[in-house]
Amino acid sequence: MIRTQITIGLLLTVLSMVLVTLIGLNENARLARTTEEQMARSIMRGAALFNTNCVVCHGEQGQGIPGRCPPLNTPELFDTKNGRVPQTGWSGSLPDYIRSTIAQGRLRSTRPDQYPGNTATDPAGVAAAMPLWSQQYGGPLRDDQIQDITNFILNWGKAPGRMAEVPEPPQQTPEQRGQRLFTSLGCAGCHNPQASGDGGLPCPNLGNISNVAATRVQGKSAQDYIHESIVNPSAFIVPGYQDNIMPKTFKDLPTDQIDAVIAYLMTRKQQ
């Protein structure tokens, strides 16, 4: 009995040692793989965070909003020789540049004429161009989340400027398409499409636009008024709001997209 127990015990000990050795032999590869996986997961988390926090201003795919916020998905950002990093005189690396910009925000835009950020849309003209995000300075995000967003933005660097084509439902109505475009083109960044005030946004509420547009300018149908407001925003400025906030670049959009947005906006009415 004792001998059997000793034999089995020895056998099990040897087996345990073999297993531990096998784990040990595989350990370096596993560590490398885990590091890679953690980076991948960080990018996934960063994508979700970007989707909830940043798209309003920087666009769904980081294409930026002309006249308001700079593009992030652009070769200029990733060009470390002549791009944004040397242009701003930043002495650190590109990841540091992105991370610190997210964490601390920007009090003043570095390109106020092109991308004034929130400063332009603030009636008093004093708001920070970009809000700060780190909890260290009173923002909403933890530092590891800021690192996630940084990793996500850096991932554009593999093919900067490439825009993903978002597949569209085949049988959607123009209104449904317009609703998606309203968000993806960045309109929702400034205009509230729900009928509940402007929510502190610097741009007119569009919750009742289909009724409002019909009576805004004498002799113009609602569709024509909305169309004009999109392609030539300065043609009519609603009293109490400022000129030159809305970008003038929407006139370059394909006609079918503009029509879809108009179709969507025509559904915005209060009973």
Binding site: M1, I2, Q5, I6, I8, G9, L10, L12, T13, L15, S16, L19, V20, L22, I23
Partner: peptide, 24 residues
């Protein structure tokens, strides 16, 4: 000694092996 001590060392080897194998 030796009956139960041997048995306990066997249990030790068994417990360790099961845990290592489960984790592996």
């Amino acid at each position: 000694i030796p009956d139960l001590l041997t048995h306990e060392i066997l249990l030790l080897a068994l417990g360790t092996f099961i845990m290592v194998a489960a984790v592996a």
